[in-house]
Amino acid sequence: MPVKPDVTQRTTVAQSRLFRAEELHLTFSNGEERVYEKLCSGGPGAVLMVPMVDDHTVLMVREYAGGLEDYHLSLPKGAMDRGETPEQAANRELKEEVGYGADNIHWLKKIHLSPSYMEHKINVLIMRDLYAQKLPGDEPEPLEVVPCNIDDLMDLVMRDDVIEGRTIAALFMAKAWLEQQR
């Protein structure tokens, strides 16, 4: 296992309402020095839910993405509040974004979005035994809920409007886990 480099200096170089960027001065075990920049997380993390109506139907949402300046189809997701477990945050966010809660929640994995330059992480959870319950959310407009067949996974992830990497990864993990449960 390699020896982690020493952080010899850490400086905030930019900050906005959503992001903070740090510059890291590093010295590696072989004496090489480098300067890295990274986006820092601003809270306890986030959750991404795979809500299953039944063994074959996943509920996805169509929402506007500022980075794309367009709409896309993804799994529902949201920020964890301080003090919430991933399961609590996932159930709250599912009620806010999709209008369902879940009696059966299974945490799959924590994934990092782009670890080369971001601290951001998201917990992937499968939500089953759904029941109707809507909570007010923070979305600027109602999200369109789109039922999709997870059994046709390749067709689903190859759609032109399914482009988010973490959604695609979560769908593959969820399908494999669900197949093990059958």
Rank of each mutant, 00 (worst) to 15 (best):
I168T: 03
R128H: 01
K110P: 02
R34E: 00
G99W: 04
V58C: 13
P51V: 06
I111V: 14
P142M: 12
Y117L: 00
E144K: 14
Q133N: 13
R182Q: 15
G42R: 02
K4R: 11
M60N: 04
E93D: 00
P115I: 06
N149E: 10
L24M: 05
E63A: 03
T85M: 05
E69D: 13
R82K: 07
Q88I: 13
E179N: 12
A170P: 14
Q15K: 10
L68K: 03
G99Y: 03
T167Q: 03
E32S: 10
D55M: 07
T85V: 06
I126G: 06
G99F: 06
G101Q: 04
L39K: 03
A21D: 00
F28G: 04
L156H: 02
Q181N: 04
D161G: 08
W107L: 15
R17W: 08
F28C: 02
D155R: 11
H25K: 04
I122C: 10
L94S: 12
I163Q: 15
S114D: 06
W107G: 06
R159H: 10
G101M: 03
Y36R: 05
H120A: 14
E37A: 01
V50M: 08
A79T: 02
I168K: 13
V162M: 05
G43L: 00
L153D: 07
D151N: 14
N104F: 09
E84Y: 02
P44A: 09
V61D: 07
K4L: 11
D6K: 08
D81P: 00
A14G: 05
Q133I: 10
N91D: 12
H112I: 11
L18Q: 10
L113G: 05
K109F: 02
G99I: 08
P86K: 05
S114A: 11
R166Q: 14
E63F: 00
G43R: 01
L73M: 03
V13Q: 01
S74A: 14
N91Y: 01
Q15D: 02
L68R: 08
L125E: 14
P44Y: 08
D81R: 13
T8N: 01
E87I: 10
F19E: 00
G45S: 12
G137E: 04
R62N: 07
K175T: 02
R182T: 15
H56S: 14
L73K: 05
G42T: 01
Q133A: 14
S29H: 14
R182M: 13
V145E: 12
M52V: 11
G66S: 10
P147D: 10
P140V: 05
L75R: 09
E139A: 14
D152E: 15
L130E: 07
H106K: 15
L68M: 13
N91T: 08
G43T: 02
I163V: 15
A79N: 04
V7N: 00
M158K: 12
E179H: 11
V7D: 00
F28W: 13
I168D: 07
P136A: 11
N123S: 11
R182K: 15
H120N: 12
L94Y: 12
K134C: 07
R92S: 08
E179M: 12
L125A: 13
A46W: 10
M49G: 14
Y131Q: 03
L178Q: 11
I163H: 12
V7C: 01
V145R: 07
P115C: 05
F19P: 00
V157Y: 09
E119L: 02
L178M: 15
V58R: 09
